[in-house]
Write a protein that binds this DNA or RNA. Structure first.
Length: 399
DNA sequence: TGTGATGATTTCGG
DNA sequence: CCGAAATCATCACA
């Protein structure tokens, strides 16, 4: 293994290097040597370092010749070992500063390797200083400039390798994206929370408008297309698994209700709150689910009729809270039920997605003849703090 | 390591 | 172009 290669071997070879250092250095600068020899050694080291410093100022031929001389020098292995050690320390300190979330393990390993080689990662300004210190220690004096490494052709090589590395990295990432090997990361808990809240509170029409999507995307820190994916997946999976989702629906319904209760006071607006016959206040958690999917009858999807029958008695219970707050949870379904409305929507040709639940002419989930997410007959009303949920009826701004 | 959950992509129909 | 449905690929957890 030649010296260039040794340098390129980074921390993985540290043990070997340390060993090499102790061997090479101790052999050459043995403390047991007479003082006279030590003096000579120091001088020689100083000269070598000076030559290294000057080498880039010389013509190519001259430099080559000098490099050859250097390579043949008996102190060269020891010096090189020292440089390796310095580089090692530098790399370690650089790595210590890097506290980022670990990417792909393979990439991480590659990065670490390249970091160790100085190919990737931050410019190491401190490294040269360390090198200078170490050089000074070796040469026995503080006289050496602190950019010893900076000017070597080693650095040029590093730059070359660095650029190759970045190019390859780009290719790799590109390939990763385009070749089906997608990298997936789950959304944050908070984002999921927000999405679920929206979904379950718009269960009657889980098709966020463009604006709502954008708002949700902003809130969740994800892209609009991810929002689309999420809602697409959610609708399908909800449908497939209505029984299981019930629990979740429960949860979010309860949350929504309690939130609504907390924020209700101001907007008692135009709704006539019907003091429910069921003891108004305590509906919350356990009952909401019934309003959503309720029925559990076979097809898993709640036909509006079933909903109406099943839930009617509970509608009033929630109505008070929800209606008064602009209806965070399932407001549309209320309206619907109250009106006995269940008409297939969007005959006008507008897309379901384009209207929010609040809008007249709301959308419906079109799934093989089963009106899963029933259309809403919009008596919309808003008052929720969430701008995504209470857009003006004219919402479809962009068409 | 197996498995369910989940985000992304593909296919298909309107 | 949108959404449903199927499928893929990865994550996360026991």
């Amino acid at each position: 293994m030649d010296d260039q290669q040794r340098l390129m071997h980074g921390h993985g070879a540290s043990a070997t290097m340390a060993h090499g250092i102790s061997q090479g250095y101790m052999q050459t600068v043995d403390p047991s040597q007479p003082p006279h020899d030590q003096e000579n050694t120091k001088r020689e080291i100083g000269e070598i370092l000076q030559q290294i410093m000057n080498i880039t100022d010389q013509s190519l031929d001259e430099a080559q010749a000098r490099k050859h001389t250097l390579n043949c020098h008996r102190l060269k292995p020891a010096l090189f070992s020292v440089l390796c050690e310095i580089k090692e320390k530098t790399v370690l300190s650089i790595r210590g500063q890097q506290e980022e979330e670990p990417p792909d393990p393979q990439l991480l390993r590659l990065d670490n390797m390249l970091l160790a080689e100085g190919v990737a990662g931050p410019e190491k300004g401190g490294g040269s200083a360390a090198a200078a210190n170490a050089s000074a220690a070796v040469s026995g004096g503080p006289g050496q400039p602190d950019n010893a490494i900076e000017h070597s052709d080693y650095r040029a090589k590093l730059a070359q390798i660095r650029s190759i590395y970045h190019t390859e990295l780009e290719k790799y990432e590109q390939a990763l994206l385009s070749s089906g090997r997608r990298k997936r990361r789950n959304f944050s808990k908070q984002a999921t929370e927000i999405l679920n809240e929206y979904f379950y509170s718009h269960l009657s029409n889980p098709y966020p408008s463009e604006e709502a999507k954008e708002e949700l995307a902003r809130k969740c820190g994800i892209t609009v297309s991810q929002i689309c994916n999420w809602f697409g997946n959610k609708r399908i999976r909800y449908k497939k698994n209505i029984g299981k989702e019930q629990e979740e629906a429960n949860l979010y319904a309860a949350k929504a209700a309690s939130r609504a209760a907390a924020t209700m006071n101001a907007s008692q607006s135009g709704y006539n709150m019907v003091p429910n016959s069921q003891g108004g206040g305590q509906m919350m958690a356990g009952q909401q689910p019934d309003m959503y999917n309720l029925n559990v009858n076979g097809d898993g999807y709640s036909s509006s009729a079933a909903v109406g029958a099943n839930v009617q008695s509970q509608v009033n219970a929630l109505r008070h809270v929800i209606a008064s707050t602009g209806g965070y949870a399932g407001e549309n379904i209320y309206d619907r039920i109250q009106q006995g409305g269940n008409k297939p929507a969007s005959s006008s040709g507008s897309r379901p997605e384009s209207q929010d639940g609040n809008k007249p002419g709301g959308g419906e989930l079109r799934i093989s003849a089963v009106p899963e997410f029933p259309d809403i007959q919009g008596l919309s009303e808003s008052g929720d703090d969430d701008s995504t949920q209470d857009e003006p009826p004219s919402k479809r701004s962009k068409v």
